[in-house]
């Protein structure tokens, strides 16, 4: 069994208005050394199977469902559990 830890974020070319608001608010609160904020989504998916098959499967489900690759990028790691 593997636990896939999946992170989905906007691509750098996409302005994320939520991240901008958080960054600006942190600055206003005196956290002046905060230079950038990224907001994303985190998923954990448990899968049965061998590592290679699971790896391909997770890549496909990220590409087809968990991320919209028009505006988002994804990365993941597999942890045997």
């Amino acid at each position: 069994m593997f636990k896939a830890k999946i992170y989905v974020n906007y691509k750098p070319s996409v302005l994320d208005p939520k991240a901008e608001v958080i960054k600006n608010t942190l600055s206003r609160l005196g956290q002046t050394n905060v230079k950038d904020v990224t907001v994303g989504k985190y998923f954990e998916v448990l899968l049965e199977g061998d590592r290679d098959a699971v790896d391909q499967q997770v890549d496909a489900l990220c590409d087809q469902m968990l991320a919209n690759v028009n505006m988002e990028a994804y990365r993941y790691s597999l942890e045997e559990v």
């Binding site: 906007y10 996409v14 302005l15 994320d16 208005p17 939520k18 608001v21 919209n68 028009n70 505006m71």
Partner: peptide
């Protein structure tokens, strides 16, 4: 339709939120 790939691009949050 954009999610399904029938139209190009995507819709994201309004800049004003």
């Amino acid at each position: 339709l954009t999610e399904a790939g029938l139209l190009p691009g995507a819709l994201q949050w309004n800049t004003s939120l």
